[in-house]
Simulated scan of single mutants.
Amino acid sequence: MPLSRVRLSDIAAAHRGTGGIAVDRATADFRRGEPLVVRDGDRAVLALAVEALSDERLARFVRLAGSSPSLAMTSRRASLLGLGSDGPGVVRVSLSGTPVAQRLRDLADPLSAPAIAPTVVAVTAARPLDADSAAVALAKIARLLPAAVTATIGLIDSRQVEDWARLEGLLIVEAAAILDYPVDTARRLAKVGEARVPLAGAENTRIIAFRPSDGGLEHIAIVIGTPDPSEPILARIHSECFTGDLLASLRCDCGDQLRGAIREIAQRGAGVLLYLAQEGRGIGLVNKLRAYQLQDEGFDTVDANLQLGFDADERIYVPAAEMLRQIGFDRVRLMTNNPLKVEALGHCGIAVVERVAHIFPSNDHNENYLRTKAVKSGHML
């Protein structure tokens, strides 16, 4: 059924019932370069991902909004442009006139070709739960650069907004739903597949797949041996790394940590490796490649993320805690060098009774990477 024939109040109800369907649809629209409506209470904002901007899409956006757009971006990215102080949160940058798409992308992307930036009229801090903050959060969920073009929709009430959006074929999504999405979907994991998969050096292994209720990316539990449910389980939390895990990249130590954890768990008898779908510390593969390019220009691994407008680490560990509970464990002996993982699991209700060091030799390509993790992220190497 075309969106123009769907009651948008029904879409909102669907979100409340399933914990993220509307956000999942909004994510797909953002990645395709489609505008959508983000609503926080009585205020509604038209939003479009900056990364997907073209002059044609921007012209349509301005026509729909009936006003010049603003640029919503993270405070971290804005501070690097001299548009405010560093810190968490989102700012709304008001611009003079209607800028072209390329100039907006220049502001959001540190790797964009140099161009004359539009004249900035004002920079305003967005409220933590408002539509501008949610639009930037949606860009992160979509694994795009964390910036969005926004414009307040000047209609009187929510019914007018719904009628207008229906006529224009625009999806409406609630700001609160976007901001709750990462944790909400992680709490709704369900087992969707399980099989015995013998591994080199760990033949007695089962792989269990968990899928969030919105149908998003699966997380994987690799259960080695037969862990005793009455004892803390030996566990490793490993965020996916396409370049390191699959291609044996020398820029990181991820591949060594993955294969080393499987070997060590097997040697110790039993345990679990939780493989989280959080590439690049939660920013996605494309943004990780952008961070690599910035590293080649002289930034370290932390500063490269900040240049892109992300936090140094965007991961959450609710999925790991939920998988542990579903396989029957609330106490772990955690294989990690990262004290934040220990703290995060504790906040999620999983007791870390022991930290097990998990260190591998460096090489000529990842020495600076490992040094930065120790100095700036507190890794115990």
Rank of each mutant, 00 (worst) to 15 (best):
D228V: 08
I233Y: 10
L285S: 12
I327T: 08
L71D: 06
D106E: 14
T372D: 02
A195T: 11
V149N: 03
P128H: 12
C241G: 03
E51C: 04
D245R: 08
D24S: 15
Q278W: 06
D296A: 15
A126S: 09
R92T: 13
I359T: 13
P227H: 11
H358F: 01
L179N: 04
M335K: 10
V375K: 10
V183G: 08
T226Q: 14
V183H: 14
V6L: 15
F299N: 12
L3H: 06
V120D: 04
L64A: 08
L345R: 00
G154H: 11
N368R: 11
E168D: 07
N287H: 00
A65F: 00
G255M: 06
K288W: 11
A304D: 10
V91E: 06
V353W: 07
E162D: 15
R281S: 08
A186M: 07
P2F: 03
L308W: 10
T152M: 09
A320Y: 15
Q295S: 09
L53S: 09
D300C: 07
R325A: 05
L340Y: 10
P110I: 04
A248S: 13
D29H: 02
V50I: 10
H15L: 09
L345K: 01
P212Q: 03
L334G: 02
I233Q: 05
E314N: 03
A270R: 04
V173Q: 05
L289I: 12
A125D: 09
I222T: 12
L247Q: 11
A195W: 01
I172E: 11
G346P: 09
G41E: 00
W164Q: 05
L129D: 15
H219N: 15
L8M: 08
T243E: 09
I21E: 13
L48V: 01
E56S: 13
E297T: 15
S68P: 08
R105H: 13
E367D: 11
G328W: 02
A321W: 06
P182R: 08
L276E: 08
W164K: 02
R290K: 14
H379E: 07
E162N: 13
R251Y: 06
S158A: 15
R43N: 05
E168F: 01
L381H: 10
A235F: 00
I141L: 12
R159Y: 07
L3W: 03
T18E: 14
R32P: 01
N204Q: 13
K341I: 00
M335N: 08
R76T: 15
V149Q: 00
E162I: 11
T27R: 14
L274V: 03
G84E: 04
V353M: 06
Y292K: 04
A28S: 12
D109T: 05
C241P: 06
R103W: 09
